[in-house]
Amino acid sequence: MDLVTLEQHSFTATFIAYGVASLIYVIYLGYKNESFVRLGTIATVIGFITNTAFLILRWRISGHAPFVNGYEFLLSFTWGIAAIYLFAEWRYRTKIIGAFVMPIAWFLLAWIAMKMPESARNAGNLMPALQSNWLTIHVATAMVSYGAFALSCGTSIMYLIKKVMENNNSRSSFNKRMPSLDVLDDMSYKSIAIGFPLLSAVIITGAIWAEFAWGRYWSWDPKETWSLITWLVYAAYLHARFTYGWRGNKAAWMSVLGFAFVLFTFFGVNYFLSGLHAYGGL
């Protein structure tokens, strides 16, 4: 089997594994069975391995870091989500979060499967502006940062749901098995505490690279501007949290909003706006 076929299979395997994992985690919301949900973890780990394999194969095939077109971005993004999620599952020993995080990764892949034409998926050559070592470090940091924001968004949604259930005095096992509000709030914040420094690094490495490639560290290109907007939203979140004690509902809503901005920076800018950064071709 040649590398290209192997790469296509690794995509399919990742897609299926994340799909199965999402399904198991979602079923687990209403069906408490620990050995059943362990299958979800196994599926996530398998997906993570095949996702990694995809990126390595793509790197081998194209001869450069697999961070160049929209297809490669997406698989890097899902890799970041799975990596951060597995870390959180291990760290917090709770699997129920999977129901709110892994579907994000799966939807991203489903979106590729449905929407992206074959030609946009192929490994391509690097255009002159992209031929830089900064490409790897810039996108690699973005990948982990965005994964952390995805986790924060997932736990914030859980917080909001649990809050409503608590207000209604829900006694469902679903409510009982969700981590406590405090833990969810803490997880959401800690994810941002990982994502925010990395996002700062993404913007700065991008600026350094732009200084080398375009001779301008900042040109208000839409992608740059939107990454700054995302940064500002999370900065506002952090200030509100520390000085006004915005926790709970307000913080959760802000984290969800922040992730909406991440997604827009990631897809929306390429899709709706044009600029120097329009390599993605989504």
Binding site: L232, H239, Y244
Partner: peptide, 21 residues
């Protein structure tokens, strides 16, 4: 006031959005 700071961060974000549209 920190309130002003947070408002300015959000105003800056909003203004930046307008500039990209």
């Amino acid at each position: 006031s920190m309130k002003l700071g947070i408002i300015l961060l959000l105003v800056l974000a909003a203004a930046s959005i307008i500039g990209t549209i």
